[in-house]
Design a protein around this nucleic acid. Structure first.
Lengths: 206, 206
DNA sequence: TTGACAGCATACTCAGTAGTATGTTTGCCT
DNA sequence: AGGCAAACATACTACTGAGTATGCTGTCAA
């Protein structure tokens, strides 16, 4: 495996990624123009093209950051000695709030999950999208492993693992499709939502 | 409620919709051009613009057809006197094969579920997208009703109905994201897949 | 037979957009 | 002080792609 360093992103670059995620979410990554992102920043194209060589790379880095968010939060809550059910519950309870905290990023990466093949003309873009796919598979395997462990020790019923994993992942990402933060929303809403989805997820496997 | 007639589409128009669904699925509705759709048909733009006033209307009619597919198959299997659990099972077992049979259409309509606001400049486009949203809500209500019935008679656990319904709908649409028909796939695969997802869906609610 | 219309193809226009080339400013190091 | 590079802004180019205007061909009714 190659180096898995974090290049320590500059503040300006992070600000651009935030704006891009916001705009790509609202207009769609294809429809939105670089000028749209610049307008969201209150600046011009020059700033963006100074930090990113192309629109495709900008999009790829938004998606990559989306994957990184959950990959930094979820693995630490997995306890090797804990029961699969408890592990899965903690994973879901960690995943959902983190996803909703960084919602625009995940709304963007989900656009690519629909199966639209990236055009990816340049080599750098292809490399980045390959890296995204790799991180996605790594994240999937976290869930696949806990699923298999649960089926082995009898806490989960035996069924096709791939189908169960895909369904589970989509279930815990469901709020990305419909959730919209509201001002009058109770402080505890996200936690309660996560708990309900964790219950549903676990129940669906028993 | 307005008239719910079926305008009896011409064969050529249906062929264009099939091609558009296929191309929009592959390239994304935004990225794909009208010329791409024409090339898929082995013809030129002229044919498409003879039947559809704009790209937006073409996209809307693809989405509308996607909604119609399931709306024609699922409601008939709902038996007013049957138990909610049995009704829901039949709905899922009908929904999934129909969706996979008309997969390109549903891959296109899912692109719009991500929340990308349509530009919809013309009045006709706005009307069509309003109609799509209306049919979507009608379809959601089929599931909302059976959920509430099940919670009332105790076959389903009591929980937030909207969250449960959204999660359920996404769960049964999960195969749209990952399923790809394969030549070496067993004849019974779709049926088995549907059965597994129906089990998961029902279990998640108990 | 003819005209009139449906059903396309061909050949354009024109607006928007990715990308580039070239200024301009602002720290920062020596 | 002064120079130098990072971090932008400005002003272009070239091209793609939606939409249009118009031409062509078969079919069918009167």
């Amino acid at each position: 495996m190659a180096d898995t360093k974090k290049p320590a992103m500059s503040a300006s670059k992070a600000e651009i990624l935030d704006a891009a995620a916001e705009v790509f979410m609202r207009l769609g990554a294809d429809t939105a123009s670089i000028d749209d992102v610049a307008r969201q920043l209150g600046s011009t194209k020059g700033r963006i093209y100074h930090h990113f060589p192309s629109k495709g790379v900008l999009l790829a880095e938004v998606c990559l950051r989306a994957a990184d968010f959950v990959l930094q939060k979820v693995p630490p809550v997995i306890a090797p000695d804990a029961a699969p059910e408890e592990n899965l519950r903690q994973m879901v309870l960690t995943h959902i709030p983190e996803v909703l905290r960084t919602l625009p990023y995940h709304k963007v990466i989900i656009q690519s999950y629909v199966g639209v093949q990236q055009k990816s003309t340049t080599a750098l873009e292809r490399e980045l999208f390959a890296q995204i796919q790799q991180e996605r598979k790594a994240y999937e395997n976290l869930f696949r492993n806990v699923l298999q462990a649960g089926m082995q020790d009898g806490s989960f019923r035996t069924q096709n693992t791939s189908i169960a994993m895909q369904s589970l992942l989509l279930l815990i990402n469901a709020p990305v499709f419909w959730y919209r933060p509201r001002a009058d929303e109770p402080e505890t809403f996200v936690a309660e939502l996560s708990a309900q989805l964790a219950d549903m997820a676990l129940a669906s496997l028993r």
